[in-house]
Every structure is written in structure tokens, then in C-alpha cells.
Design a protein around this nucleic acid. Structure first.
Lengths: 273, 273
DNA sequence: AAAATTAGGTGCGACAGCGTACATTAAAGA
DNA sequence: TCTTTAATGTACGCTGTCGCACCTAATTTT
């Protein structure tokens, strides 16, 4: 696994494309930079197996990862999606250093990775320096999150932990209450938001695994979406052709999850539309 | 709501029955004590409505709360259960100060509550003092959690946030993959662990709401469990009569969630068997 | 270009859970 | 005690998804 790491050098030049990192001050970024390394992740790479220690955390830029809960009978299902808006393995900031959930790369691409000790050291240096404690009155609205000013590493990681919880909670409800076609549309939208372009490289078989249904069910659902002109696909390649229509076809859970994230961490720019 | 608060005085004497509080040092407990107040919560009390600010957090002792995700069409479903092993509203420690999920009291009973500002102040005083940073080598095993020594308030709250995420992730998978009867058994066990005694005061109607199914479905599932001699019930009162059998009837998710908690925060004593 | 492999389409019986409606029984109130 | 209300039991047709099996079409390999 992870045979596809290409550039073990330090962070490359260019704009920061991970939203969490982009929220940090220049000073804090400078603190992290020496420990960040560019990695290229390929679809199918497994970042953590269930129960494995978290040796590295990943700040995806163009890559997208899925958290997958696997049952003893072999069945599995996705419980979280992480792209450029988040961090993979961020639970180390909560004190957990083993990952109980399998994480695999859904969409190949680029990420910055960092060793867990380095991340924890950086947190220890910055904690309390800018907002961990004073939850109230942090700007406008109802006071959630960091929209606006820069924040400390610690604060950003904790807010993202909350955002991931929100996503997971919404998924828990969605899995029980919503029909396959809606959930399918939602999943495609989540990938669309995190990936680049309108083309997703994945098979219906894989999608069925993520959604916890059988492959034939996905064929039916995708068939309906295609006939409605919302997507196109051919052999392992799904194209979003009508984003707006797809949003209408998805359950409310898509928008709810986006809103929850924005409330905590502000709108992710550019790649997240 | 919350009309049932009885004792607005400071914490009563007697042993600490909330596991998170029991993990703290005497010194830290002393720090919190002036701000903790005894409250009696009645079944059906709503601690937070969706979107409301988190003005108080609750450390349940005998009370049990549920986190409920509600959809726009009125449907709702439980995404988390919190009793003496946790804290309700703990996401303030992550920097979120509005609750996106409705929290209601499932089993009436006792709790200690604390204002959010007081909690955040206490966190600010103690953070970094004993383990937020150094995730590695915290004792034995694979190094997770706090089993053994005492920990800081901050660390305990963050670990519990992770435990709650684990529970939610497991629920997300369970909701999609497991049959109603198994999920029903699992839910009863979770309540049994957190409440006192073998009797649960609740209607099948209520249970159906928690599980996101119709009431008649619960009647069938409970009927099967009763005919198997695992439970008994009559008008709003369910009695666990064969705990071991019920564990066998439940899906693996029950044990998985317990194990995840223990790994992070150690075995909760006494009331959690 | 042919063969092998992989992805997608389709059909069919089975079944869990849905929505609804209504009957029955236990508890609470007058 | 009688009435009212709340909780539970049950029935029935319906729909979504399952599990399986098999076929077709696109892509890759040889």
C-alpha cells in the first residue's frame, strides 16, 4: 500500500489547496511546513486499516478519501468522506492514536502528509494561543467556527472533528431514512465537490460498496439518473452532466452536511463550489 | 422545558457517578465543583433543540440522553446515546457552540450541569497540562486513551468526542446493514448499560422513533424478543429479563461500540457493567 | 484481431419494512 | 366503578431492496 508516493520532498511551492491549512496564519504554516511532505495517492490506496496506528495524517488537496466501517461478515459501508476540506487521521488531535475505521483513497490525487508526532508537537506549541478556550463571541452570527479571521491549528482541527461528526450523524440518518437513488445522487455530489472536474473514475460495483447496497441496485439508480440526463457513464467513468438537477435528485442530507461544515469552518474556496 | 430542575445548589456529596468526571484528578474536580450544579432531568425534557446555542453541558449520572437528527419532513432518528459514561453538549470543547442535533432525555434521572463559559474556562486552565499533546506512549497497549492514570479535563472531553464519533459511525453502518430486531436488541442493551435496573420506561412508539421505523415494526420485533424470553413488557415498561440472550440477539454493533469506548476511556465502573 | 477480463443490464422470486386501518387491552381519571 | 385515553396487537396490500443468476458490452491483454 502507498506504493505511489512520488515526492518525499518538502511542500512544493504554489497556493495552499487544503482548506484547513489555508485557515492558518502564515506563522503557523511556517511551523508546519518543514514537516509536511507532498505525496501522490492512487485510487484504492489504503491509508489505514481498521485498528492500525495513525502514523501519518493527510491533508488532501486533490485526493479524496473515504472512511469505511467494516463488519465481521465482510460487509462494509462508508461513514465519512474527506477531501481538500479536511484532514484524514485528524482524530489524533483528540488523543486517539489508532484508527478504528478503514480509510481508503477514493479519488487519486495529491495530498500533504505529516507524521503524527510532528502534528502533535505543533499542536502543543500553538494550543490556547488563539481561541481554544473562548468559544463565545468569535465574530458574527451565532458564533460558531472561524469564518473570517485566522485560527490556530488546534482550533481548526477540533472544529473539523466536529464537522466530520456532523457528516457522520447525517449519514446515519440518511442510511435509514432515504431511498437509494437519493443517496446515490448525494454521494456523487459529495465527490464532485471534492474532486476536480466532472468525471469520476469509479465502478458501480465500488459505489454499491460505499452505499452498502448491491451492485444491481446501483445500476438501477444510476440508470434512472442517467435517463433523467443528470449523469452519464461508461465502464468505470461517471460524468456529472447536470449538477443542479443532481442536487434536486439528492436528499436534503447533501445540503445539510455542506451547511454544517460552512457554519464551523467557513466556505471552502475554489475547488469546493 | 427543563421545568424539572430541582436542586440548583452546588454538587451534592457522595461518590462521582459520571465516568468522565471520575477520571479527573482531585485537583481538577475541585476546580469544576463550584460550577457544577445538581439537576434532575425528566424523561422527555429537551436539553437542546436543533440549532440552539449550548448554554449548559450535562454530565449525566442516572439520566440518559439521546441525540436525534430530525429531517425536514419531520422524520427523526437517534444518532447517539449519552449516559453516565459521557457528556451532553461536549462539542463545545471542540469549539462548536450551537447544537445541530436535538438532545432529549430518554431516561429521567440525575445529572450535573455546568455553564458553557465555566467549562471553557476550566479547559483553558488545564489544557496542555497533562496529555493533550503527547498522544504516544500513554501507558500500555496501543497507547489509546487514558486507562490507568488520571487525565486532564481537556483530554477527557476530546477522547469522549472521539468515542461519540465511533458510536455514531457504528450506528450509521448498523442503520443500513442490520435488521430491525437486531437493532432493537442493541438499543435496549445500550439503555440497559446506562440506566439503573432492568426496567425501561418507554413505549414502543417512542422506540420506533429512535430506530427510524414504524411503530408496528417495533411491536413485531419486540414480540419476537419477548417470545424468546429475552424481554417482557406491558404498557410503556420494558423489562430486560435475559441480558445474555439479548446480547446474542443484538448485532455486533453493540459490542463494537462498547469496545471502542473502553479503548479510549477505559471501562466505566459499576453502573456500566 | 482474437481472447480474456471487467463493467454494466436485466430478470425473478423472496422478504423486510412501509402505510394504513382497526381491534384490543392496560392504565389513568372522574 | 365507569369512562377515557394511551399502548399494544394484528392484518393487508405495497414498495424497495435483496440474492442470485445470467447475459451483453466495453476494455484490456495477448
Amino acid at each position: 500500500m502507498l506504493s505511489s508516493i512520488i515526492a518525499p520532498s518538502a511542500t512544493s511551492a504554489g497556493p495552499i489547496r487544503n482548506h484547513l491549512l489555508s485557515l492558518l496564519s502564515v506563522k503557523e504554516l511556517g511551523l508546519l511546513a518543514p514537516d509536511l511532505e507532498d505525496v501522490e495517492l492512487a485510487a484504492g490506496d489504503i491509508l489505514y486499516r481498521a485498528g492500525a496506528p495513525i502514523d501519518f495524517v493527510y491533508f488532501p488537496e486533490t485526493a479524496v478519501a473515504s472512511m469505511i466501517r467494516r463488519m465481521t461478515d465482510g460487509a462494509g459501508i462508508e461513514v465519512g468522506t474527506i477531501g481538500c476540506e479536511g484532514i484524514v487521521g485528524g482524530s489524533v488531535a483528540l488523543g486517539a492514536n489508532a484508527m478504528t475505521t478503514e480509510c481508503l483513497i477514493q479519488v487519486g490525487g495529491h495530498a500533504n502528509r505529516m507524521s503524527t508526532p510532528a502534528l502533535l508537537a505543533a499542536i502543543a506549541l500553538t494550543v490556547g494561543g488563539g481561541g481554544h478556550g473562548n468559544g463565545h463571541g468569535n465574530g458574527h452570527g451565532n458564533g460558531n467556527g472561524v469564518p473570517g479571521a485566522e485560527a490556530t491549528l488546534s482550533r481548526v482541527l477540533l472544529l473539523y472533528a466536529q464537522a466530520l461528526f456532523e457528516q457522520c450523524a447525517q449519514t446515519a440518518a440518511c442510511n435509514r431514512l432515504h431511498a437509494l437513488e437519493q443517496r446515490c445522487a448525494r454521494w456523487l455530489l459529495m465527490m464532485h465537490d471534492r474532486g476536480e472536474g466532472d468525471v469520476l473514475i469509479l465502478t458501480q460495483e465500488f459505489l454499491s460498496y460505499m452505499l452498502g447496497v448491491r451492485r444491481a441496485g446501483v445500476t438501477e439508480a444510476c440508470g434512472t439518473l442517467m435517463r433523467a440526463g443528470l449523469i452519464r457513464y461508461r465502464h468505470g467513468r461517471i460524468t456529472i452532466s447536470d449538477r443542479t438537477g443532481l442536487e434536486a435528485a439528492a436528499c436534503e442530507c447533501f445540503q445539510v452536511a455542506v451547511d454544517a461544515y460552512v457554519l464551523l469552518l467557513g466556505p471552502a474556496p475554489a475547488t469546493i463550489r
